[in-house]
């Protein structure tokens, strides 16, 4: 599904190197958790996967389903099934949420050579997915994310994911800002999408989310590199001991 090799990336503006030789492979159907201290480069990795322009790749490669991801435009990556749930979803005044959802779905379908979704089908689809995530349709009448609470924004991200049915989901701290009930609802939403041909990368600081979305692999990111990988027990170990030992061992 995804193979990242020796990835080096820096901020285009000021040449600060953030990723320093990152390796990561995610198989179809795999749920991979990425953990790591603040500022270690987790969101940077997520943004680079999605195609944000602020970073410059100086070395390494990313192969996604046999394609060179770095050569694809942001919207092409999305149409090819890559989805990033943002750590901080943006508020976009003036763009009605429903217009946005329909445009996104149909843009992707068009790029894939599929028929556009007609309005009644689209509405039915949104209603069904929103209900599963306990999202009030009234919220979707508002401009995109505008005035949504922190938790509502995260839920809206998962709704988008459910509607766009991606192949590779990257969840950047989707658990932060969610109350306990919402965490369950959102996790169920993610689990409902789990399938043998869909992979998920879960970026999180907390074991709590991984109790609900049980990972197949856990990776520790520190200073721009994966310094340790393991199974779900690695996350429990981190929860108990913190990062210090692992980082020292790797050094």
């Amino acid at each position: 599904m995804l193979e990242i090799k020796n990835l080096h990336a820096r901020i285009a503006e000021d040449d600060t190197e953030i990723l320093r030789g990152l390796d990561l492979a995610v198989k179809p159907g795999e749920v991979a958790a990425i953990m790591g201290p603040n500022g270690s480069g987790k969101s940077t990795l997520a943004y680079i996967l999605a195609g944000k322009q602020d970073y410059e790749i100086t070395k390494g490669s990313i192969i996604y389903n046999g394609q060179n991801l770095l050569e694809m435009d942001t919207h092409e990556r999305a149409a090819a099934g890559l989805f990033l749930a943002f750590q901080y979803p943006l508020e976009i005044p003036g763009v009605p949420t429903m217009t946005f959802l329909r445009t996104a779905i149909n843009s992707q379908r068009k790029q894939r050579g599929e028929d556009e979704l007609m309005t009644p089908d689209f509405l039915r689809f949104v209603k069904e997915k929103a209900a599963a995530l306990k999202i009030d349709m009234a919220m979707l009448k508002r401009p995109l994310n505008v005035g949504f609470s922190g938790g509502e924004k995260k839920r809206a991200e998962i709704l988008q994911m459910a509607l766009l049915e991606p192949k590779l989901c990257v969840l950047d701290e989707t658990d932060s800002g969610l109350d306990i009930d919402a965490l369950k609802v959102v996790s169920e939403g993610v689990n409902a999408l789990r399938s043998p041909d869909r992979s998920v990368i879960v970026i999180t600081h907390y074991q709590r989310l991984l109790d609900y979305i049980v990972p197949d692999s856990v990776h520790v990111l520190s200073k721009g590199r994966i310094i340790k990988s393991g199974d779900k027990s690695l996350a429990l170990e981190l929860e108990n001991k913190g990062y210090t030992d692992i980082i020292e061992d790797a050094a």
Binding site: A50, G51, K52, Q53, D73, T74, H75, R77, A78, A79, L84, F86, P89, L90, I92, V95, F100, T103, A104, I105, S107, Q108, Q111, Q160, L164
Partner: peptide
């Protein structure tokens, strides 16, 4: 950033 968010959902630039 708004532009990136929209494009990240598959909408061409």
């Amino acid at each position: 950033n708004h532009l990136f968010y929209l494009m990240a959902r598959g909408i061409p630039e």
